[in-house]
């Protein structure tokens, strides 16, 4: 969090780099940049390679494997890939994925904000024990919950609907609740206490005073929630068995089934495409992402 209590010495060094002197000097040398940029390139190479390969022709994918620059640039793979399989195009899969990720994110972030306010600012009986329960769920393997959930949802006839995927989101997500709580704690209490003196209810305080101030935390939560839902695989795999309900993740898996057709060009194209929303958000909101991870250790 940005708010550092004034008693810690951190304040002095918040903007000053902390490091050994010899290391600082070394960091000014060109060797440092060569090394860091070189290793960074190695890190990025597989992703760049995937995008480059998606624009290579059918033969070039095999004859010119490692190159990052397609000799004959073609978008044929995207045209072929988009056609999908079983009479369903990727239009369906993207619609499903955007619906799932969008609805789940909206639910999760709204609920998390409301719950976080309750835990952070209202003193009620049993708060501490419930808060401990919430933190404990962070460590719980989903496997312990997913089997009974599946049995109940299947008895309700909800297999092949989005209900089992969305309904558990109504309570927000422990990670985000915790993160937003930390954020709310950093907001001085004067304002909501003054409002309360004037007879403003908790609901009003939340919507008028707290909510506008926690937007950065909400954006961070929304980004991560979108990411996790976008790449979610296990839940759709269990509940969505009809191809017309497939999310992009499921479709990619079915599409690249080793026992089926292997048009690698098309697979590369559709794989690359599925990463585009993720990278667009990454580039646009990098600051929120970095802050979110640094302050709460999201995405462990």
């Amino acid at each position: 969090m940005e708010t550092v209590s004034p008693t810690t010495p951190d304040r002095v060094s918040v903007h000053a780099p902390a490091k050994p002197l010899s290391q600082r000097n070394w960091m000014r040398t060109p060797l440092y940049h060569v090394l860091v940029a070189g290793f960074g390139f190695v890190m990025l190479y597989p992703i760049l390679w995937l995008f480059a390969s998606s624009f290579k022709g059918r033969d070039e994918i095999w004859t010119n494997i490692s190159s990052l620059i397609p000799q004959n640039f073609t978008i044929e793979n995207y045209v072929n890939g988009w056609r999908g399989f079983g009479g369903l195009t990727f239009t369906t899969f993207y619609a499903n994925s955007f619906f799932y990720a969008g609805a789940a994110t909206l639910l999760t972030v709204l609920a998390s904000a409301v719950v976080a306010y309750g835990f952070a600012r209202i003193r009620f009986a049993g708060r501490n024990i419930l808060f401990a329960c919430m933190l404990a769920t962070l460590m719980l393997p989903v496997q312990v919950q997913i089997i009974p959930q599946y049995i109940v949802f299947s008895k309700l006839g909800w297999i092949n609907t989005f209900l089992p995927l969305l309904l558990p989101r109504i309570g927000g997500q422990a990670f985000f609740i915790f993160m937003i709580m930390q954020f709310i704690r950093g907001i001085p209490k004067d304002l909501d206490e003054a409002a309360e003196m004037d007879g403003c209810g908790k609901g009003n305080i939340f919507f008028r005073i707290i909510l506008p101030q926690i937007t950065p935390a909400l954006i961070t939560a929304a980004i991560f929630s979108f990411y996790w839902t976008w790449e979610d695989f296990l839940t759709p795999l269990i509940y969505l068995n009809e191809p017309k309900l497939y999310t992009v993740s499921l479709a990619l898996r079915a599409f690249s089934d080793p026992s089926g057709q292997t048009d690698w060009g098309a697979i590369f194209a559709m794989s690359s495409l599925s990463l585009v929303p993720v990278f667009v958000i990454f580039v646009a909101f990098q600051r929120y992402l970095v802050e979110g991870i640094s302050t709460t250790g999201l995405k462990g």
């Binding site: 409301v114 309750g118 209202i122 419930l130 109504i170 927000g172």
Partner: peptide, 9 residues
């Protein structure tokens, strides 16, 4: 109010 706010969770 506390329980109202945390009720979704």
């Amino acid at each position: 109010m506390g329980y109202l706010f945390i009720s979704p969770w």
